[in-house]
Computed example of a mutant assay.
Amino acid sequence: MKIVCCLALSALLALSSSAAYSQAKPAPKDAKVYFITPRDGQKIRSGFWVRFGLRNMGVTHAGDDYQNSGHHHLLIDVKDPVDPKEPIPQDKSHLHFGAGQTETFLELAPGTHTLQLVLGDAKHYPFEPPVVSEKISIRVRQPAAAGR
């Protein structure tokens, strides 16, 4: 009985560990995600549009499992790369665009911020190889004073 339980547990552990690695969907090697706006180094007032570009893949909704397509995630001031074995987090620094959006209006505090795009699959996992933009840096200026 102990041997059967041990074998069953071993099989379960083997399957669950391989499941963690099987999430990565293949992406074309020439796929590219990038910022249309803003540009790296741009000085900008808060309340600005961020427009996403994608080449050699398609944009779809989260949950739609079409080959060579995914949806955008915008990382704001994130220092560490996303873990390819985990879904992309969803919080104030990891914005999900699961309805297939290709732009967003952002309001950020004055100061220097970094932005990066990551394309996620139907379940929010990064592709393999990851489809990730260059990290850009922008400087958000103080809002204009009223009456000027």
Results as ranks from 00 to 15, higher is better:
residue 132 V to F: 02
residue 51 R to W: 05
residue 137 S to R: 12
residue 101 Q to H: 08
residue 106 L to C: 06
residue 64 D to I: 14
residue 146 A to W: 10
residue 40 D to E: 10
residue 116 Q to W: 01
residue 114 T to Q: 06
residue 54 L to G: 04
residue 128 E to A: 06
residue 53 G to E: 05
residue 62 A to F: 13
residue 55 R to C: 02
residue 56 N to L: 04
residue 136 I to W: 04
residue 51 R to V: 10
residue 103 E to D: 13
residue 75 L to T: 00
residue 120 G to M: 07
residue 49 W to P: 01
residue 106 L to I: 10
residue 131 V to W: 02
residue 121 D to N: 07
residue 81 P to W: 06
residue 48 F to A: 00
residue 139 R to V: 13
residue 65 D to A: 15
residue 57 M to P: 08
residue 91 D to F: 07
residue 63 G to P: 06
residue 122 A to R: 09
residue 95 L to C: 06
residue 42 Q to W: 04
residue 111 G to A: 12
residue 115 L to S: 03
residue 51 R to H: 11
residue 147 G to P: 11
residue 68 N to T: 03
residue 66 Y to M: 07
residue 145 A to F: 13
residue 101 Q to N: 11
residue 84 P to S: 07
residue 111 G to S: 13
residue 88 I to N: 00
residue 82 V to Q: 07
residue 126 P to H: 10
residue 120 G to F: 00
residue 50 V to P: 00
residue 121 D to K: 01
residue 144 A to C: 12
residue 85 K to S: 15
residue 104 T to F: 08
residue 80 D to H: 15
residue 127 F to H: 05
residue 125 Y to A: 15
residue 71 H to C: 03
residue 116 Q to S: 05
residue 81 P to H: 10
residue 137 S to F: 10
residue 41 G to K: 12
residue 136 I to R: 06
residue 45 R to F: 14
residue 116 Q to V: 00
residue 82 V to T: 11
residue 100 G to M: 05
residue 143 P to G: 00
residue 110 P to R: 07
residue 136 I to F: 00
residue 70 G to F: 08
residue 58 G to R: 08
residue 98 G to L: 06
residue 111 G to E: 09
residue 129 P to M: 02
residue 130 P to W: 07
residue 84 P to N: 05
residue 113 H to K: 02
residue 41 G to R: 07
residue 142 Q to I: 15
residue 41 G to C: 08
residue 80 D to C: 14
residue 118 V to L: 11
residue 116 Q to H: 03
residue 45 R to D: 04
residue 119 L to E: 08
residue 86 E to F: 12
residue 133 S to A: 02
residue 51 R to S: 06
residue 73 H to R: 05
residue 130 P to M: 13
residue 134 E to M: 06
residue 97 F to A: 08
residue 96 H to I: 08
residue 81 P to S: 10
residue 111 G to W: 05
residue 47 G to E: 06
residue 77 D to M: 04
residue 100 G to H: 04
residue 91 D to W: 11
residue 49 W to H: 08
residue 111 G to Q: 03
residue 90 Q to Y: 12
residue 52 F to E: 09
residue 93 S to Q: 15
residue 96 H to Y: 09
residue 145 A to D: 14
residue 142 Q to C: 11
residue 125 Y to M: 07
residue 131 V to S: 05
residue 93 S to G: 14
residue 99 A to H: 12
residue 40 D to F: 00
residue 72 H to Y: 08
residue 96 H to A: 14
residue 103 E to Q: 15
residue 45 R to H: 09
residue 58 G to Q: 11
residue 118 V to G: 01
residue 95 L to D: 08
residue 44 I to A: 04
residue 63 G to V: 07
residue 112 T to A: 10
residue 135 K to F: 08
residue 111 G to F: 06
residue 133 S to M: 01
residue 71 H to E: 03
residue 84 P to T: 01
residue 105 F to G: 09
residue 52 F to P: 01
residue 90 Q to F: 13
residue 105 F to L: 15
residue 129 P to K: 09
residue 64 D to M: 11
residue 68 N to R: 03
residue 51 R to I: 15
residue 80 D to S: 15
residue 39 R to D: 11
residue 114 T to S: 14
residue 119 L to S: 09
residue 112 T to M: 13
residue 83 D to M: 04
residue 133 S to G: 10
residue 85 K to L: 15
residue 52 F to R: 06
residue 69 S to F: 03
residue 116 Q to K: 05
residue 119 L to V: 02
residue 83 D to K: 04
residue 120 G to H: 02
residue 91 D to Y: 04
residue 126 P to S: 01
residue 115 L to R: 03
residue 141 R to A: 15
